[in-house]
Design a binder for these strands. Sequence first.
DNA 1: CAATCCTGTAACTATAATAGTTACAACGGG
DNA 2: CCCGTTGTAACTATTATAGTTACAGGATTG
Lengths: 136, 136
Amino acid sequence: MVNSRFSVAIHILSLIATTSDKSQLTSEYIAGSVNTNPVVVRRMIGVLKKAGLLTSQSGIAGYDLLVEPKDLTLLAIYHAIDGPEQLFAIHDEPNPACTVGQKIQRTLEGVYTSVWHAMEEQLQAQTLQDVLDQLR
Amino acid sequence: MVNSRFSVAIHILSLIATTSDKSQLTSEYIAGSVNTNPVVVRRMIGVLKKAGLLTSQSGIAGYDLLVEPKDLTLLAIYHAIDGPEQLFAIHDEPNPACTVGQKIQRTLEGVYTSVWHAMEEQLQAQTLQDVLDQLR
DNA sequence: CAATCCTGTAACTATAATAGTTACAACGGG
DNA sequence: CCCGTTGTAACTATTATAGTTACAGGATTG
């Protein structure tokens, strides 16, 4: 299973989108909601910031989304956190002297790519706003 | 990313399906094709055996498939190796005192389940025979 | 029946990914 | 100036994964 970074990212973005009192929105407060360490939160926020999803100012509490929740797809968030582009690992260097070993990598790549695309479609179809609606 | 066990399982099953000379089909030979250790192969084969996909006899080289390649979907193989039923981890114990923290787990479960089903469909649509055809 | 090759399995080790933690420099508001 | 905050680097702990060693027991062959 892939790590929980994607879940944490969605959680953080949801908090930013729904918290009106900016001064309350510190990394420590967010960490309290997510149940993790403030540094983990700041680290994740740094990644989301680099991807252009939000802004912040050093020394001041509060974060602002740069994309409307209804325009922010889960796929965009996934790409922002630089999640893996493949779901399954393929073993290294199968034996090229063997018919199966010779072609298994290409074959599996094809299989996994079709699976991957199905997943992308699902993530593309849902936005942060959809998540917010379900949190109400 | 999920581990390479799924890839290795498909590789092993492909070899068993395509190797006519049973006496050649030892765990060491398979390991040579996959590029891993014979014990890793035997361990994986033990799992596939328990799932009813193949048989073997202690002390004798060779394995036999119990399911026709055209009837063996990749999803069945995935279930056989007991792959994770979810792609993304959800962080533990978000704060229930917070609106977001309270409902984020259920919400993410819903999101991830829809992604999971899309993936299952893809794996269900492809059989070991499809893989074999591409290996030729 | 002894030698040999194989499977099945337990136990240990090595490596890498992930998350958590400590520490501290730099920024801003009161 | 003081305090709370962000941004980051560096270290540690935990866990998953794969690789490895070791060995008991079945089957074949001379």
